[in-house]
Design a protein around this nucleic acid. Sequence first.
DNA 1: AGTCTCTTTGGAAACGTTTCCATCCACATA
DNA 2: TATGTGGATGGAAACGTTTCCAAAGAGACT
Lengths: 360, 360
Amino acid sequence: MLPLPPATIKDVARLAGCGIATASRVLNKSGPASTDMRERVERAARDLGFSFNAAGRALQSRKSMTIGCLVPSLANPVFAEAVQGVQSELLGSGYQILISCSNYDDAADNAAITTLLENSVDGIIATMVAPDRSAALMQAKQRGIPVSLMFHDPLDGMVTTYVDNFVAAGEVARRFATSGHRRVGFLALRFSTSDRSRNRYAGFHAQCRARGLADPSLIEISEEEARYPERLAATLARYRDVTALFASNDFLAIAVQKAARHLGWQVPQDLSVVGFDGIEVGRLLETPLTTIETSPEAMGQRAAQSLLNALQGLGLTQQPPLPFSFREGETLAAPNPKRTDDDRVAAQPSSVPPAQAPKQ
Amino acid sequence: MLPLPPATIKDVARLAGCGIATASRVLNKSGPASTDMRERVERAARDLGFSFNAAGRALQSRKSMTIGCLVPSLANPVFAEAVQGVQSELLGSGYQILISCSNYDDAADNAAITTLLENSVDGIIATMVAPDRSAALMQAKQRGIPVSLMFHDPLDGMVTTYVDNFVAAGEVARRFATSGHRRVGFLALRFSTSDRSRNRYAGFHAQCRARGLADPSLIEISEEEARYPERLAATLARYRDVTALFASNDFLAIAVQKAARHLGWQVPQDLSVVGFDGIEVGRLLETPLTTIETSPEAMGQRAAQSLLNALQGLGLTQQPPLPFSFREGETLAAPNPKRTDDDRVAAQPSSVPPAQAPKQ
DNA sequence: AGTCTCTTTGGAAACGTTTCCATCCACATA
DNA sequence: TATGTGGATGGAAACGTTTCCAAAGAGACT
């Protein structure tokens, strides 16, 4: 039994004894047909196991019923959940998702968008390194393809679904200040390729100033430090005077907890830690993580919803930011005066210290 | 500036002053052309910003250069990472990924496969509730579309990439026995829709028997219990005599730790816990999780690799299972004789106790 | 000069669909 | 009976490609 070619609408028409146009109209319910004819066509289609060929359809109708989705990585659950949100929102709509990951690489971002364009996607949902500078994305807009960004703060001429990183990060600074911290730090993994991280830092920094705190130390770490707590510990040890750390995402915050333990520091007594994102495991830790809670899934849903609206001709309009909330965990407390006193002796100047890891 | 339609190969041919066939040959490097002609065509294409239209191509060549990927959910990082693996493996190959999620629903599985078929994917990579009973999947195979499963143990007539769940789970039983546990339990979230869970239970059960342990209690919990530690605690409290728990995935294992804390039990002193999957956060917990370590990303990569081979006509062949390793964390220890003695008084018979949650 | 071969080229069909348009038929109205 | 109305139907073009095939031109050989 060789793989016999799938039935086409011609086959259906032939079996039903009618023209192709009629078969098409019946199967699409897109035009008049007598009851008799309707039955014959439907029966023929069923008997042949007919289903439409998307390529033929796309070619003729200039609609691929496919939307392109570009995210940095699916290994990051934040993006994976967002895509899940997109998927769930698109579920009944008839649209498929063509997916692509850039691994946080600008060139890959552009290549991916180009590929999506070649596949004539009807719309694009994306999180990129630099959407504002992407030539491919421009091209998409020129072609009239609606583009809906996720996670990016509002950008000129782009519609985006986002959480106000600046404000949310400011809230963390506020909490730090209220708890009595004076010297705080901001820990980021991919600072240069993530406008989210940069905006969080900016908001954090601004609010620190507003509250009279010292300018926060910006600690940019490597993949390796993020992965091995003892490496991270070595880096943290160089910021002894910092009593509270704002990690730009929850995994980092959890890694900080582990690293702190490694140094014999207690969280939150010796070091307060606050994360960002609000992943579920954070709740389940022995010391539940204090964090900014967001919903990546809602982000994806809303981005998809916007796009669907645009696809229905309703126009693509910028919505207000998604809400976030400050989740009170147990990793934020007042600074330990004893520790700070003791340790400050050994502390180094820290307004913007080198972010490099010590060589091993 | 209205969205002007993208340039077609006809436009290129016209501008280059040649026939369509020639333009196609040059742009595809698929046939002879004089140097002069080559240059003219390439220049024209560049000037027009031409790129191929995938639909036209797919229609004529009967190759969509798209592979369909179906997983239960992207909210589960195990699957998300697997898809990431697929994606990374497919990167330079020219294939796109059309993605779909079933939310662990059998009907949705079938619908998704059908949709993929309509989109004439060239191959399918899937994890389903019941691949062996999927009519749509049969249809795919009949059409000669290569199918590569992920996470499923080998199945009649299907090629799958997997970790030997039976053996891996047996290893956990072995460790429990060696540590001196006699009464153990197996905790699962979606037992009925996951052959993985079932195979893990089977392997665990078999090895418990082989080692002379009591038959493990099968504890099937609801989404809600998995989410709220106090609910899970209530359930666990009904299995006081169980001294070691094998959770069918790491998140569950982490939830168990939290629930145990809620009951005032120490892990591992009062209750040993072992997980499955080997997610990264497990390492970072205050009490690092003991677990079976696997690599979902490698799973995706290998599945994709198989499929690529098949697509190149090399034939799709079943590979041996992927390796796993037992990660020594700190959540497995010898049972606490005191606790077991004390608590057994209140214990209920537990060979196969009701798996339902107490009504609230 | 005639014949052959080889390379370069373009015309046209085919892929599966949708949709415009014309035709046909039945029936109602004048 | 002639005219008009309106629904049902099918032919054919078009969407953007690839590829088969034939034609045309350039040398090389007899």
